[in-house]
Design a protein around this nucleic acid. Structure first.
Lengths: 217, 217, 217, 217
DNA sequence: AATGAATGAGAATTCATTCAT
DNA sequence: TATGAATGAATTCTCATTCAT
């Protein structure tokens, strides 16, 4: 039916926009080019979206929507904190390849581009994960799974910082290069290495430690 | 004398450019406006820089130069890893306020804008810190200050990820909002809280842990 | 029956067009908007009218048709010239309020918009009144009602000029403001004042005068 | 060409704009075309005028300025009302040919185009003549030159209506055609005829009349 | 026949870059 | 050499018109 077609087409337009915005950035991306690549006329684009800005917002929302739904899948489970963490790291690795453009879009708003929308998006996007992560940590503390001398909100923040950087490292040019500089050319292909080291880092961070360091043999 | 003047003027031009780029982003910043604000003619600007792109690069380099010199001050010391970490966190807090624009410039290249220069910059900027941090960690392991079951490069990577996010949290709109969402409205004014929690996180991450978690009383 | 319906619909479409053209002018008026307001699809509009221009012409013709029929009512009578003049002034005042949009349409072609159609419309619209007015004046001269030393065509022209300006003064923004500037803010509400003064002006213009001016006491 | 814009050039640009606006109307006139015709780039045009609208306003003001200065020349004299009237009619005839475009610009704002500026312009343009004409008439009444049973403001209004229509008749397509329809094909070349008949009309209108009409032989 | 989504040429506006002075 | 006015390509957005359904 016509409606169905339109919806598919709309999705296609958004995807084209996302691809273009992700590659060129919101300013260098050209509305006419996007329309041409999407196989439609500019007119259609402007029928659905008031202006370039609005279209960019739509692309952004779609991207964030996808990312969020992926996140939900992972979060759903009722595992312990570190099991969850592992799942999340693996999820990041998996969908970073598939949804690279969505993450690039996310990256875009973290830089100046989205300026005026920063507060809006930050609240919208981050508050969900913030709440979830903080909740996890609080529960883990109560359950005695992790140390109890920490501020759950700040630790959730550090935790998400690490995940966020991991995401960008897999998807965004600069961060990709940076990861290679730090960890070696092949790091982004060696998923297990990343998982194990990051988990080691996190597990330890969340656990009480001996004051005396004892070297294992 | 003339040369001196020119150099000062050049610095002023770059600073004006940095301010403008940091505020508007590389695409929305206007070369003519920058020239006017710097009190020179566009002609001069184009005498020194081939085009807008080249000028942006120059602003970038200046920004990175400043950041690097600040970093060196901190790195110079010969403290233990966590003492160094504390110094770095405090440094970030201090210069994030003073050099906010430089950090914004840094943030700019991490997003799409710098695309083609990403590899170049990543190598240039990050390899220094990568080497330094990795060296620190290796030394700390040798000295028995921290656990020895870790990959120094990846741990250096995680360490810098946390510092980088902290920097951006103090300077860049989106990250600022995000930090507030995670840690509360006042987090960016409560430097001690950030220092102590992040240090707790890092110290623990770098230390061997008991398998059994024991809750402190 | 169907034809009747269509005719009504057509009238409605034209009225919508007239309203829109009168408000926005021929260029700023939007065909799609008109269609929507008229409750039809653009397709229908383009079925009846070759293009926007043709549709505008149709709106114009309808407007002129209405104005002409109003004019006829007034002209029909067999009064003396000044009685007729009074009737016409009062008619202008009356229908200026009711048919404001038609007069605005008329005003539209008198400005650049209608350019290429100017000769056509001028001939069509004005020749009727020209003939009628000139006829009146010739008859009045013959009847000895007015002076006989005048050129009936030019006096008819002057007469219509005054009526035309009166019309526009009641309906068209600029002319309305202008009338207020000349005659005071309330002039357009004081119909009697306008009638009496204009009649005075006309009566006198059409009458032989003493060479010596004698002031009444 | 990279030549500095002189005042002459600026005047030339305005004249080009006036010509284009007068011919095509404010909406159909094309800024790029005007720039090309004026031998400049669009950029220059937008350097001097914020947007098309502002440029149109500037063209308008220039036109009105010229018209006003012409008017002043005529008004300056200290003649009797009808002598003045004659001078004005002849002035209209003279400058209608030379300054046809300025009058077309004037005509443009009297139609819908200027809509939002109507009140502004009406006040600005018309109040001068309104005051002058009304003053003339009041003086003429005091001097016993004309009848004293009239409202000076309204008679000034009627007087200006006739002059305005005359102007448009000489310059604006529709009005030109209309004049021919009323007065014959050659009317606009026969200046004397227009002068004498219109003066006859005016003189009479401003003079007391015998109640009894006496036919001259 | 009627619809109205889609088309795309056209117009306004911006701004990096040039170059005559 | 420095200036900044001038350039015009590029981009966004509109809307008269078409045509598949």
């Amino acid at each position: 039916m016509l409606k169905k077609l339109t919806e598919e087409k709309l999705a296609e337009i958004l995807e084209t926009g996302i691809a273009e915005f992700a590659e060129k950035g919101p300013d260098r991306a050209n509305v006419n080019v996007i329309a041409k690549k999407a196989g439609i006329s500019v007119g259609v684009l402007y029928k659905y979206y008031e202006n370039k800005e609005a279209f960019f917002q739509a692309c952004l929302r779609r991207s964030l929507g996808v990312l969020e739904s992926v996140l939900h899948e992972v979060i759903e489970s009722d595992d312990k904190l570190l099991t969850r963490a592992e799942k999340m790291i693996r999820a990041v690795q998996r969908y970073s390849r598939e949804y690279s453009n969505y993450i690039k879009m996310y990256n875009l708003i973290t830089s100046g581009s989205g300026k005026k929308y920063a507060p809006l998006y930050a609240a919208e996007i981050e508050s969900m994960t913030a709440k979830v992560y903080t909740g996890f940590i609080e529960r883990a503390i109560k359950d005695g799974d992790i140390r109890n001398d920490i501020n759950p909100r700040l630790f959730a923040f550090f935790f998400d910082n690490l995940l966020m950087m991991l995401q960008f490292s897999y998807c965004c040019d600069y961060y990709t290069e940076r990861a290679k500089v730090y960890c070696g050319e092949d790091i982004l292909e060696d998923d297990e290495k990343v998982v194990s080291e990051l988990l080691k880092f996190l597990e330890s961070a969340f656990t009480f430690c001996q004051s005396e360091v004892v070297h294992k043999k």
